[in-house]
Design a protein around this nucleic acid. Structure first.
Lengths: 230, 230
DNA sequence: TAGATTGTTAATCGATTAACAATC
DNA sequence: TAGATTGTTAATCGATTAACAATC
């Protein structure tokens, strides 16, 4: 899909071969690099919360399951962030990676569904720690409208378009039953959201310019289980 | 960086050339293959629920973001599951992949945390659809003990070891605050759980024989956002 | 048949790994 | 210094992709 196309474009055909790994010429990271950098960021953010000041590629490797050589390689492509014999400064590495991923700022998200899952999401730090703010919660149940959910009040779906516009919302999170997901995805698309984070099991149909990410804990479990069983 | 040598080796190696891709000789799947097969399974399971009888590699590709050629390649390594001009039978592909992943049976899981997230997990089909059954829920809050959460009643932590033994539980899910996660992970390890699914942000320390998977929705969002922003 | 889609080949690209000099 | 860890090279392996004959 849209991701597939990105991959082919990533390092465009016949570019100058002397450009090391990732010079400033290539304006877009490869899918793999972007995914791994995001992963490092997660661990670094938490390590910082725990008061850790430096971290080695070996430690990062243990938490991310990414080979330590590759971590050093990924990072050294953008600068010499580490100190030999010491490791990487957690704070400064967080800023560097945020800069590389261009996600230094705050991003507003709209959440659909004020059930258990929606409340869990709105009340957690998981998104907040990475600069995502739940600025609006919607639910189709009229009884829930006005409820306080995390930092926001539950709004009526009819207000969606207005809020997306006003709050400059790019990401929509679907924490609703599978049966309702497609209908609400359509509304999110219609309102102008570009990224949909789907916590239902529905296989969503969206236009090509919209990216869907479906959460799949069971898939991860199956995968882990396979390696346990063999 | 051009490796002309690779080309010469491609067919030059002295190995039996007729062993297709993945004969029965290789007893363990590579990480990548196992991950992708799990992914296909998720989509197939949902497609089946929706009444779909056949699916093409192209359709699977759209939902999984895996290249369609690679899907055909992954599958053809284990047998000729598809029908040219038609696609794959959803039902039979589900069984085949389950067989390959050796996850055809039921697996019991223990859930820690009877808050919003715990209740959302216990009440959803996400795990159930893939053969995972929440057989026990634990919480440290005495007030919650005895509560009905999804299909199970909330138990006291002291019963953990007993239940893990009796119910043959291999997987533990942590849906608890970050501050409590390490302590409970220790208890799960002590009780004999081999796979921990961590929904907190804690960086868990566990012995090498235990696998930790930390859920990271924000990481996935950062990643998606990068490609939207660039 | 005619259209669609698999199974497979061949080529290229990116990931992985070991090893080690540089250096904090 | 001595120990640790980065930054980097070189080699191999697996993933990705286009293309197309086979065949339903």
């Amino acid at each position: 899909m849209s991701f597939g196309d990105v991959a082919t474009k990533a390092d465009g055909g016949g570019l100058p071969p002397n450009d090391g790994g990732l010079g400033p010429l290539s304006d877009r990271l490869s899918l793999g690099v972007a995914a791994r950098l995001s992963r490092y960021l997660q661990v670094l953010t938490q390590a910082r919360k725990m008061g850790k000041e430096t971290i080695s590629s070996q430690e990062l490797s243990e938490y991310t399951h990414v080979n330590s050589t590759q971590i050093r390689r990924d990072l050294s492509g953008f600068g010499k962030f580490g100190k030999r014999g010491v490791g990487y400064n957690v704070d400064s590495l967080v800023s560097q990676i945020r800069k590389i991923l261009r996600t230094s700022g705050q991003h507003n998200i709209a959440l659909f569904g004020a059930g258990h899952l929606g409340r869990a999401i709105a009340g957690s730090d998981i998104f907040a720690d990475h600069g995502f703010r739940v600025v609006a919660v919607f639910d189709q149940d009229p009884a829930k409208i006005g409820d306080q959910v995390g930092p926001a009040k539950v709004l009526h779906v009819d207000d969606l378009k207005l809020v997306v516009d006003e709050e400059d919302i790019v990401v929509g999170v679907l924490a609703v039953p599978t049966a309702a997901a497609q209908e609400l995805a359509d509304k999110l698309v219609d309102a102008g959201v570009k990224i949909i984070f789907n916590y239902s099991e529905a296989l969503l149909q969206v236009p090509p310019e919209v990216t869907v990410h479906t959460s799949s804990p069971a898939v991860d479990l199956l995968y882990a289980l396979y390696f346990y069983l063999t």
